[in-house]
Amino acid sequence: MTTLAITPMARPWRQPSVIPGFGLTFGFAMVYLSLIVLIPIALLILRTTQLSWQEYWAIATSERVVAALRLSFGAAVIAAAVNTVFGTIIAWILVRYEFPGKRLLDAIVDLPFALPTAVAGITLTAIFAKNGWVGQFLEPLGIKVAYSALGVVIALIFIGLPFVVRTLQPVILELERETEEAAATLGASRPQTIFRIVLPTLVPAMLTGFVLALARGVGEYGSVVFIAGNLPYRTEIAPLLIVIRLTEFDYNGATAIATIMLAIAFVMFLTINLIQAWARRRFGYV
């Protein structure tokens, strides 16, 4: 296996290299990727061919499905936007400032990566229900969080925050302070420097973090089902609708919704990679 890769077989799509193991590692990675991800997903897509185009279209545009997708996306977009704003602030203070408890704050940002989503869902519901720690203060103000679309947003904010912070941190770390100093020397005020010099360079990373948080949020299930009201057309998210369709023995409906979500996920990740490629050309880093 190893010698095979060294012999410079002029594979047109790969540049020759003296390092061995391409055949083995690439082959293994592709087989594993195919078995675990590609073949199952391909079969899922294949399954939808049992539907005619008209049927598929009818499912995709049915009011219930559209409402669920709109909620999943709408909530994920809002949550990702909130996370982009606050995530940027958090990343900024974590990189630029020294203050007590900073290391703790830094560590806790990763909590949503590690805390099981079901636990997050149950506790967030307990906190934001009208008799919960936070909910009891919001209730008199007429703000209903648990069992509303707002609850979905809250859960997705929890899920998505680390994506934004961890994407921005390294980029802020590598910002050249000289540019800021130069701007200051030339008479720019600090806010001017921030909004004209610093933020524009952060935009690609912010976009990447936004899309990552968005992609994760659209598909989120475990934490959201506990806190959403699950009312059709109103607080029913798309993944829940898939589960409901499964329960109705409607595999075609379930796979149809699943493929719509897959297509969207794929487009989003392709977008990230394009943003990154563009940023690399424009700024020399991601």
């Binding site: 069992y147 009201g229 699950n230 009312l231 059709p232 829940l240 589960v243």
Partner: peptide, 9 residues
């Protein structure tokens, strides 16, 4: 059913 705020599974 329109008086129902939450439909649990």
């Amino acid at each position: 059913y329109r008086n129902v705020p939450v439909l649990d599974s």
